[in-house]
Amino acid sequence: TTITITINGEELRIRGDHEEIHKILKAWEEDHNDEEIVRLIRELAER
């Protein structure tokens, strides 16, 4: 699965399995701050 998210003008492409993507979207849905979401995404992007 690949998704693209733009946060603060920075486009981040994430490839991951369903569970990893779900974790990010769940954090977003629960209204975590952008920095935390960006950190989760970067961790995935670095793999």
Rank of each mutant, 00 (worst) to 15 (best):
I24R: 01
R13S: 14
I3Q: 03
G9Q: 04
N8V: 03
K26F: 08
A27Y: 07
I5K: 00
I5D: 00
R47P: 15
L12N: 02
I21L: 13
A45Y: 03
K26W: 07
R39E: 09
I37C: 03
L40R: 08
I37M: 12
I5E: 00
T1Y: 15
H18G: 11
T2C: 08
N33A: 10
L12K: 02
R15F: 14
I21W: 06
E43G: 02
T2V: 13
T2H: 11
K26Q: 14
I7A: 01
T1W: 11
H18E: 13
L44F: 06
A27Q: 12
E30N: 12
W28H: 03
E30Q: 12
D17P: 08
T1N: 10
N33S: 10
G9R: 02
E29P: 02
I41G: 00
I5G: 00
R39P: 01
N8S: 09
E19K: 08
R47T: 15
T4M: 09
K26T: 10
E10W: 05
A27V: 07
I14A: 02
A27M: 14
E36I: 05
D17R: 06
R39C: 02
R15W: 13
E46H: 04
E36N: 11
V38F: 04
E43V: 05
R15E: 11
T6W: 14
A27G: 07
T2G: 05
A27T: 07
A45I: 13
E19I: 08
R47Y: 15
W28A: 02
I14S: 01
D31K: 08
I3R: 03
D34I: 13
L12E: 01
K23W: 14
E46L: 06
K23F: 11
E30F: 12
A27W: 12
D31N: 14
L40T: 04
I7Q: 01
E19R: 06
H18Q: 13
V38D: 05
I3D: 01
T4L: 11
G9N: 05
R13D: 05
V38M: 12
I41F: 04
I41L: 14
E11Y: 07
E36D: 12
H22M: 14
E46A: 04
T2K: 04
I14T: 01
L44T: 01
W28V: 03
E19C: 04
T1F: 09
H18W: 15
G9L: 02
L40M: 09
I5R: 00
T1P: 08
